[in-house]
Amino acid sequence: MTITVLCKWCPDTEDLEVGSDGSISFERAKWSISEYDRVALEVATSLATEVGEVVAVVAGTSIIDTSMTRKSVLSRGPDRLVMVVDDRLAEADARQSASALAGAIARIGDVDLVLCGAGSTDLFAQQVGIQVGERLGWPTLNEVASVHLTGSSCRVERRVVDEIDTLEVALPVALAVTADAALPRVPGMREILAAGKKPTVVWSLDDLGPPAAVDRASQVVSTVARSHSTRLQVLFEGSPTEAAAQLVGALRHESLV
């Protein structure tokens, strides 16, 4: 059995810098695996101790093609890594990413289960895993809170509003898991060293099964920092009792208490 985990390598949104004109820059940002995808890596690794091989798949521009990316992904449990590295994936939208990842899965072959996180830390559109599943023509579910393999099918729990469904789905299947599905590990030195010995292959968009989409489905007109509602920014000082009394006075003035 082969499980693939889709991981996104993305900039840390906390490192985003905002210019005085509202422009934004990630030039000095750290990059890492989308934190939601770390949950999917953990789920895959825990399932695979029973059954077989875990292949991680990462797609992006040449920025992802570093030993740091490889070690970061492989130290979290997968047996090997497939990277789709192509500068035509710059600012890729969900359609481009899904088409590249589905093409990689087709080329890997005989994949039984595709896992990904709920969304990416940078865009959080929660779309790529779903679109990969649909492009493969597989049953696809989002908001999956637990996964168990039962032979040729898998049993999952899925939350939809105020209900939790327990479902049995025949493999192959694509699942987007929530943070409830596993607690991601923090890799230790031994796992990081072992990661360096695990195999990685690098493909371009031209190496994939079906031709991958190379254009966005929408044109980005602008990306600007969100302007915040202007707050009063009044600070109350003095002893805790004095400050509390002043705050209660202000809240009364606002008719809030």
């Binding site: 359609r95 559109a125 989002n142």
Partner: peptide
């Protein structure tokens, strides 16, 4: 919603577009 996000993704894949979300 959860179901509509899934519907949007499946629909977008079938229409070969990228869903625009939230």
């Amino acid at each position: 919603s959860t179901r509509n996000r899934l519907l949007a993704g499946r629909l977008a894949a079938r229409l070969d577009t990228s869903a625009l979300t939230d």
